[in-house]
Structures are given as structure tokens and as C-alpha cells.
Amino acid sequence: MSEWLASYENVVALVLLNGILGIAAYLMLIVNRFSLATGGLMAIGAYVSVLATMNFGVPFALTLVLGGVTAAVMALLLGAPVLRIEGDYFALATLAFTEIVRIIALNWESVTGGALGIVGIPTETQIWQLALALAALTAAVFAVHRSAAGRVLAAIRGDEMAAAAIGIDVARARLLTFVASGAICGVAGAFAGHLNFFIGPSDFGMIRSIDAIVYAVFGGLGGVLGPVVGALVYTVLPEMLRFSAQAREILLSLVIILAVLFMPRGLISLNLPLRRWLPRRRGQRGKLAAGQGVAAE
């Protein structure tokens, strides 16, 4: 068992980390905002926390908080003007943000090391920490879903105009969600920074942001477990397909296409009886079809 763990330790760590990112993306998707800011916010968390550990000797736990807070502040600054932009335009504005952060990291050599990155980072991140963080986050989101705040979010998702009509401050709710999502990205960035001895600007670009969305959408937006399952499958799949070095990319893309075609509402929409035992939002089934249909526009 420990031998297996040694061989796949990093894969497990990545699955947990990606689960966290997936939830961050999920939170924005369920308020109808396709956010690609994940990468940029993660980058901020990562660089801030790594610089804190390496240059100022700040203890790791504190740098997690530091990363989260910095990213959250950035999310606040970014979100205020940008969240009112709709749909695909919003996605592209956040993409622009992530890319700009990446380009700054690429050029601000004295701080970030440019393309050569930061080397020799102490590997503080442990699997138990990630597992704990993911579990805590999942529980927290689940709790939110069942609370009054959760009902506000569901209302916004279901019909924004109606929600506003009954007095919900949609813009404020969205901003708070974006800040929370940003904080999560920042903490995830801090974890990621201390995972592999090294970080560089290309670790946190467009692809990272898109991957986070994929975890959430692919897994299913019906509940907080969707992004977690999505992250699990999407991270493990390339590792499982290693038996075929040549055709791995082709196989991987085909599997994803087939999965999307056969499970168009995401992986957790599979009606396994197991679902009866899994926690989910109250009255989810009926709302699921309507919620996803309208929210997806």
C-alpha cells in the first residue's frame, strides 16, 4: 500500500487540489458567471505565499491565509466592475485578467523569476492537509446550500430578475460569492506553490482556469460533489491511460467526448442508487433540470 502511495502520491495530491479548484469554479457557475479568473487568482495566492515562506520565513499555515486573503482582495477589486458584465463577455474579461497576471509574472523577473520561475520551494504541502481542506470546503458549501444564503443563490440561479424583484441584492450576493471563490483559489494557489519545489508563470494560465471549469461542468453542477468527482476523473484519466503512450492523447480526448455525450448533465447525473446515500440539496431533482437549463444560458 505504501509503495502504491509512493508511486502515486503526486496524483492523489493533484486530485485533491483540483477538487478544491473545481469547487471554486462551481461556486461561480451556479450564480451564472463563467469565470476564467481562477488561474490568475491562484497565481496571486501562489506567488504571495511562496515569497512569504522563502523570503520572510513565514510559517506555512499563515502563508495559506495570506494567499487566500490577497486573492480575495484581488477578487473584490476585479469583481466590482466586472461582475455586471454578462455571459460570454464576462468569461473573456476574466480570461483577459488571468492572462494579464501571467504576462506580469513572466516579466516581473525580480519578484517572480520570470520564465525561470522560483526554485527550491520547501514542500510543505501534505496530502492530509489537502484532504482536510477539501473535506472542510465541501462540508461548508453543502451547509451553505441548505441555509438561507443557499436559497438566495438558488434564487439567483433560477431566475435572476425574479430574485431581484423579491428584494435580493443580486450584485452583492454575486460579489460575495466571487470573493469567496477567489479566497479558495488563493489558498489552492498557496498549496500548489508548496507542492512541487517549483512554480512558474505558465502553471497558472488559461489552461488552469479552463481545467477548473471542466472539473465542475464535467462533474455536474447539481451539487458540490460534482466538481469533486469531475476533478477526480479528469485528473486520474490521463494516468490510467498511460498503457498506450502513442495514442494516449487521442484516447483521452475520445473518452472525454464520449463521457460528455453519454452524460450531458455531468458525471454525477448518473442515476446510480448510490446517490440516495449521498448528501445533496433539498428538492434537488426537480430543480436540477430547470436550474441547469436556464443557468446554462
Binding site: 509503495e3 502504491w4 509512493a6 508511486s7 496524483v11
Partner: peptide, 9 residues
């Protein structure tokens, strides 16, 4: 990193 761990372990 995954690759190295796998090759070694």
C-alpha cells in the same frame, strides 16, 4: 512529478 514517482515506485 507523477512520471518520476511512477518510474521510481
Amino acid at each position: 512529478v507523477n512520471v518520476f514517482q511512477r518510474l521510481i515506485g
